[in-house]
Design a binder for these strands. Sequence first.
RNA 1: GCCGAUGUAGCUCAGCUGAUAGAGCAGUCCCUUCGUAAGGGAAAGGUCGUGGGUUUGAAUCCCUCCAUCGGCUCCA
Length: 587
Amino acid sequence: MEKENNKLNTIRHSTSHIMAYAVKNLLAKDGKVLFGIGPTIKDGFYYDFDLHRPLVPLDLLKIEKEMKKLISKNLEFKREEITVTEARKKFSEQPYKLELIGDLEKEGEKKVSIYTCGDFTDLCAGLHIKSTKEIKAFKLLKIAGAYWKGYEKNLQLQRIYGTAFETQEELDAYSERLKMAEERDHRKLGKELDLFVFSDLVGPGMPLYTFRGSIVRDEIIQYSNQLQKKIGYETVHTPNVNKAELFKISGHYDKYKDDMLEVRSHYTNEKYYLKPMNCPQHTQIYASHTRSYRELPIRIADFANLYRDEKPGELSGLSRLRCFSQDDGHCFCREDQIEREFAAVLGIIKEALVTYGMDYWVRLSLRDKKKKQSYIGDDKVWEKSEKILESILKNNKLEYKKAEGEAAFYGPKMDIMVKDALGREWQISTIQLDFSMPARFGLKYVDDKGKEKTPVMIHRAIVGSPERFMSILIEHYAGAFPVWLAPVQVQIIPVGSTFVEHSNKLANEFKEAKIRVYVDDLNETVGYKIRKAEKQKVPYMLVIGEKEAKSDDLNVRIRGEKDVKTISRLKFIKEIEKQIKNRSDRI
RNA sequence: GCCGAUGUAGCUCAGCUGAUAGAGCAGUCCCUUCGUAAGGGAAAGGUCGUGGGUUUGAAUCCCUCCAUCGGCUCCA
């Protein structure tokens, strides 16, 4: 497997060189063509260029054509090692390459490797295929902008993304996956299923949930609440606007003040902020009493709206919002309680993800030791916290991967990475250990010897942000929610207006059983209404006509299935109630 | 915020190189009273994202701003 991947990477890497070669052939005669880097990435490759004009979509087709021409020549890739001085001479017209050569020299390299293919030579560590005839299937995907070396203060280059596979079939399958992902895009489905909207008047990144979308959102929240109650969390309510001072103490002000929305009181001219998170407020609930070691852990949770002034270009559907919430909880406990608390949270996260039908793995997010200034708290505390998290993972026999630089600024995290139905990964749940904030707020408890001690704070979220998770679920289920999440669970379709009254009576019976039902009494044909209900992805459709009016049996059509079933009314209602209660999907 | 693209009816889109807009679906009304993915008809619906400019004349060309999309950067 590993070997296969390496081969694929080699092909992709070589294809990126051929792409650069083609760009040079097509554009160099009209002006500047400077080369950045062209590495492989997950699912493909890219190459960055500094060009005399912006690329347009038509260019991709032209470049592909030129690449095909080059590939058909069966050009060989030749590797050479040259000295740094020789390299400087060779790439004297290529400032970005010169910078890279300089970097290599700083790292102590005396020699660098170059690869030549046809009359295109590139500075490159390799590896490459022997000849272009090994490139069997490739495709250029998109044009993008990207900062040189990924650093925001640098100039932006033009990036072309592409991919290559060993066979045309694999490439086709990949293209098919992209198409499927596009069809499930939650922004598209959100509109089609009428779940949420945006308004220019309300503002970017601030979604309005329709009654259907609110149902989905509420169900997600209720479920998280039900799960966290099982392990002792109680919900609290805290204000959306807080004094600046609160965030100065917590450390959020220093780190995030540019990303917080400011509010001012006209009477006192005091500065407030819309809250971007709940943790500082929760410390104040803790701090409202003297706490005994016997009271700990104190576990509180909050679903309040949060506001973050995200940069305009970073907003995207429900995935990245300026107004959102979290199934956020904080546990204040003693050090000897940390492990049990983590295990309990891991337990409910697992339960949730089984329900949602998602695989997951754990990322142990540690701080970047080279950027200590980005974090608060001293080295000893960090080392201790990181060790505690790792041992919890080991003791619970959980598979995990370490990721340096992914920690929160106040402590290390366990992040739960889920895989959706298309195999895409998302970070949702998180459990974080924090020794800093309790100290900053001067939180205390009295231990069994009557001495004051500082509690530990655990920050945790089950699905993270319900809104963002809703976007993941829409795409995961392709809009076909399981019954418990579906905005309309049963659609009743009367055959002609004669049976509307009977349908309404039936609907009331469903409503009494707390089943979300809708009677489609529009003056249209049965076929039309079935089509409408299928497009709305309603789990169950009941066609009500003369036969049903005279009997206790229902004619049930299940979403996505052509064959209809006959089920007695009472049995059907019971079944749905069961599915809703168990949050299961099928009859 | 940065690089690039886009913005026409509720939705999806057409409108070539300048002469004040068109379709399908949805919605409305009428007919039809219907059995599992679109029954028929009619009328209605848009100062072409915003504000400016060029021009005898702008949806169309130029600029500003706003929003969205593809990325980059960021994500407590």
